[in-house]
């Protein structure tokens, strides 16, 4: 049985994030255009290593997350349309389609950005975001998981459950292997507190799906959401720019880094020495209102949101706490 792996790459294209990424002097200037080129190399490497890999790309900005339908990838494209890629399109693109992927990636991304920022801009704002700073992380995250879920279902349909996994005994490990799925975040924005629940739910969902969530932070900022997602799903979280000395950054090449660290799938990863987490990784729970890291907090019994002080009604789900049991005081992390 050929292993069918799937990977969704989430690109943070929010203006704010890129404003921050670029803001640090001239040498290490890094633009979205560079990112796209490096990403293209990484995509090629992915497909080169395993021809059956399916790749999807989700782009998120402040308002929403959208899937880039990269038709030039042909059957390797992880797509929403159930019937696979439209034949005519595929014909056009994969016919000796060299260099088309990069073009495709650029035009699609540019089109998206144009529509978002320079279009009429009166679209409804999704995700209930605060103005400006964050990005639609939760929306992108759930979109990825939906995609992967659909991919897994189609795999199951195709092969039937447990059948065909080889001669003799059904190889459960093999089944597990076939359905390797991953999400890779190229993230730069800061966390939005109001997305905490959605992101955590998505992380637990990913854990159930067996999806590994990896993160590469583009800016120097850390994202505790994604740190937690990585630790829950057994993924990797790296923040190269914050960790490395500045002289290394000049020599830094994103594509090489991505190939070194994120190319290996979860099976091969066990054998490789890879950066483990991030030095300042704090898996501390944050208060939903004040965004302060907490050691002791109050947990809502309905939606499990956490606050730094006792409240009458839950600020997230609106539950009224009539007695003490409804809002529990808990030690959330122990120091040292």
């Amino acid at each position: 049985m050929e292993e069918e792996t799937a990977l969704v790459i989430v690109v943070d294209a929010s203006l704010f994030a890129w404003h921050c990424v670029q803001g640090k002097g001239k040498e290490d200037e890094f633009t979205l255009g560079d990112l796209v080129e490096h990403l293209h190399v990484f995509l090629n490497a992915l497909v080169l290593v395993r021809s059956t890999t399916k790749v999807g790309i989700v782009v998120m900005n402040e308002r929403k997350a959208s899937l880039l339908p990269l038709r030039s990838l042909g059957r390797r494209c992880l797509c929403v349309t159930s019937g696979g890629v439209n034949n005519k399109d595929e014909d056009e693109m994969t016919t000796r389609g060299r260099g088309k992927v990069l073009e495709d990636l650029k035009t699609k991304l540019l089109g998206l950005i144009e529509r978002e920022y320079f279009g009429d801009g009166q679209e409804a704002r999704g995700g209930g975001l605060e103005e400006g700073k964050g990005c639609a992380l939760s929306s992108a995250y759930s979109k990825c998981l939906c995609l992967l879920r659909r991919h897994l279902e189609s795999c199951e349909e195709e092969h039937g459950l447990g059948y065909g996994s080889g001669p003799g005994e059904v190889d459960l490990e093999g089944l597990e292997r076939q359905r390797r799925t991953r999400v890779l975040f190229l993230h730069g924005s800061q966390d939005v507190a109001s997305q905490y629940i959605q992101v955590m739910n998505a992380s637990f969902c990913a854990q159930r799906l067996g999806t590994v969530v990896d993160t590469f932070m583009l800016g120097r900022r850390d994202s505790s959401f994604l740190q937690q997602a990585a630790s829950i799903t057994g993924g990797l979280y790296t923040n190269f720019f914050a960790d490395a000395a500045s002289k290394d950054i000049k020599k830094f090449s994103l594509s090489t880094y991505l190939i070194q660290v994120f190319l290996a799938d979860s099976g091969t990863r066990a054998d490789l020495q890879l950066p483990q987490g991030h030095s300042s990784a704090s898996l501390k729970v944050t208060c939903f209102l004040t965004k302060k890291a907490l050691d002791i907090g109050f947990v809502c019994s309905v939606c499990l949101s956490i606050f730094n002080q006792k409240l009458q009604t839950c600020a997230v789900c609106g539950t009224e706490f009539s007695d003490n049991r409804a809002l529990k005081k808990k030690v959330l992390s122990r120091q040292g």
């Binding site: 090629n44 490497a45 080169l48 994969t94 016919t95 000796r96 088309k100």
Partner: peptide, 12 residues
């Protein structure tokens, strides 16, 4: 291949 993408001689 990495820079230009995979070339496939196979066509529909």
């Amino acid at each position: 291949i990495l820079q230009q993408g995979i070339r496939s001689v196979w066509t529909e």
